[in-house]
Nucleic acid binder design. Structure first.
Lengths: 240, 240
DNA sequence: CGGATTCTTGATCGTGTTCAAAGCAGGTGG
DNA sequence: CCACCTGCTTTGAACACGATCAAGAATCCG
């Protein structure tokens, strides 16, 4: 089963996936130099919310899932992470979320102290870290709008739009998109139940917007319509 | 009316408010040195979402409100800002949100290029900026959990808890808390309607948890119960 | 004091949840 | 190799929470 899920990420595009990863770490920053490569199996936990935040991780290959839990088990996924993403950047002492491997995963593990030191001395690292945290923030703020104000259909369409962009960044064609996560993961990311996610999918299928050859793959038939449903990406200026 | 609203922030605690502001800018960073002090009247807009993000603002006195809009007018407030908070830190070219003055406002306006330069050279500024953006991120992530998974009552209780903490930071007693924002602002922050906010308030009042001598002030009668309703702040470790 | 805005409460409605059950795929053990 | 079992997905039916629509009260401010 773990094997099977792991395939979703790499199996389809025809692209090995490693090429993209190499690209990422070379272009964005040279963090690999001060970290060690680690592997994790799907469903492994990298760290728990509240653990001492001593390490930062950069995803090389695979996908991860960051989430918070309420005492009664309600879960909110804050972010899905793909090749190149940094996990665990925080101002606090402890990690603000739990991080699970969604697929089999390769990560670079960097000691926080080492990264901090490098941020002080190396301009490029500083830029990379600032940019990464800025991206994370802007993503979170966009997600606030989604969770606070969008309908179920708008949420799912927004999610697909983001997954399409992710797929394009990974060298995909933007038509066939792999979904490494389960319906529950998607629901917990979008603030819905998995039943509602299924129903929206069924509705999109009925409208001819998407097709789902298998649960972990969607074919985008009408990206424009999907984008319109997803709604205001960035607000067009209302007034001066 | 503007005057009146402005009073809510400063009038109650008996503390002038300026002392706190001075404290903040002295302790956290010396950004004032490279910026200019500006004043804004309640309801003024500092900048619009999408505007070129050429300036960063630090609140000296008063409160501000950061929000995104959907094309049809639905609004999501990302954050309320108080003395000491930085507004407009972003990795992108444009501001990711609109910023309105909630009350009459004093801010330090800093050219982004100047701040960037100072971040390169000054260790303290670097720390201050990294810390501020980290705080903003962690706040946003907590808000994701609220918007995605909490009930209306839990949201309002969480909001009150945060306002109590803010009030304590400003030297208040944590019993009488001023609400510079309207019910609509609160609703747009919590992903609810203003009617629902009113109803939750009525319910809390009926339970003896709070009292509302006037619409812009709440008395906290039972902080413990309120905290319990607000629910899992930070998740107690589930397993090892 | 008068007009506008904000706040509050009530009644009804609808979207998404909850509860339930069936279908399906993958992995395991006999 | 097949049967079973587990976990994931899908669909259906009933329900509930919060939204919407509406009206009146309170507050603010000129």
């Amino acid at each position: 089963m773990r094997q099977a899920i792991a395939e979703y990420g790499a199996g389809s595009g025809g692209v090995p996936g490693w090429s993209r990863a190499a690209e990422v770490s070379a272009a964005a920053n040279a963090l690999t130099a001060i970290g060690t490569v680690m592997r994790r199996t799907a469903k492994d936990t990298l760290f728990w919310e509240g653990d001492a935040a001593d390490h930062i991780y950069q995803v090389i290959h695979g996908a991860a899932c960051l989430y918070k839990l309420l005492p009664d088990g309600r879960r909110q996924v804050a972010r899905f992470c793909h090749a190149g993403d940094l996990i665990g950047l925080t101002a606090g002492e402890g990690y603000p979320y739990t991080a699970d491997a969604l697929t089999d995963l390769s990560v670079v593990r960097i000691r926080r102290a080492d990264l901090d030191a490098r941020v002080e001395t190396d301009r490029e690292t500083r830029r990379a870290v600032l940019h990464a945290i800025g991206e994370e923030l802007s993503l979170a703020q966009e997600q606030l709008l989604l969770l606070g104000r969008k309908s179920a259909a708008e949420r799912v369409a927004s999610f697909f739009r983001a997954m399409i962009e992710q797929s394009l960044r990974d060298g995909g064609d933007g038509r066939s998109v792999s979904l490494p996560m389960t319906r529950v993961d998607i629901a917990d990311y979008l603030g819905l139940t998995h039943e509602t996610v299924c129903r929206v999918l069924a509705s999109f299928r009925a409208q001819g917007l998407i097709a789902t050859p298998d649960p972990h793959r969607i074919l985008i038939c009408n990206p424009e319509a999907l984008g319109e449903i997803a709604g205001g990406d960035t607000q067009e200026r209302l007034c001066a």
